[in-house]
């Protein structure tokens, strides 16, 4: 993965994570970096688009709530976050993790925060996919009893 793809991946992971999971895992790593807000956490709406017939021209489907935040560490690294929902602490923590992932703390955060978040998201997705799979119709054809 390129650097941008790697960053996209963790930002997406943080955006989709449950706020309480991010808070608990981030607290456990006990990093309390000094930082300033470049943009204080702000709750807003993002217009979600779809495409006519799934592949045609875009249309506006409706909005979703998103909270964004940007921080700068005392050492200079800048972190951004756009997370689903209205939890400002979630957005701040996600922005801090994004900034810290650009520092020597990255490996520690990858193991202690990102990996468990990814694991729980994969688990949740697999659990639902498994239940869906159990409802898949298994057609069979009745053979008539004539020769």
């Amino acid at each position: 993965m390129t650097e941008i793809e790697t960053r996209k991946h963790w930002m997406g992971l943080l955006a989709k994570a449950k706020p309480q999971d991010v808070a608990a895992l981030f607290e456990d790593v006990t990093l309390n970096p000094e930082f300033t807000y470049l943009r204080a956490p702000e709750v807003g709406g993002v217009m979600v688009q779809g495409r006519a017939g799934a592949t045609g021209a875009p249309f506006n489907l409706g909005e979703m709530t998103v909270t964004r935040c940007s921080v700068q560490l005392a050492e200079g690294e800048v972190g951004h976050a756009y997370v689903q929902g209205r939890d400002k602490a979630h957005a701040t923590q996600a922005a801090l993790i994004d900034a810290l992932m650009q520092t020597p703390e990255a490996e520690r955060l990858r193991l202690a925060v990102l990996a468990p978040l990814e694991q729980s998201q994969v688990q949740a997705r697999t659990a639902r996919a498994s239940k869906a799979a159990a409802t898949k119709v298994d057609f069979f054809t009745m053979v008539r009893g004539e020769d």
């Binding site: 702000e42 688009q49 495409r51």
Partner: peptide
């Protein structure tokens, strides 16, 4: 409530071909 939210942007069109289908 929606009218009180600042608009942060518009998404890329969602790709329903990538949907994790439950039904």
């Amino acid at each position: 409530y929606r009218t009180t939210l600042p608009r942060l942007g518009a998404s890329e069109p969602v790709k329903t071909a990538d949907m994790a289908c439950e039904r």
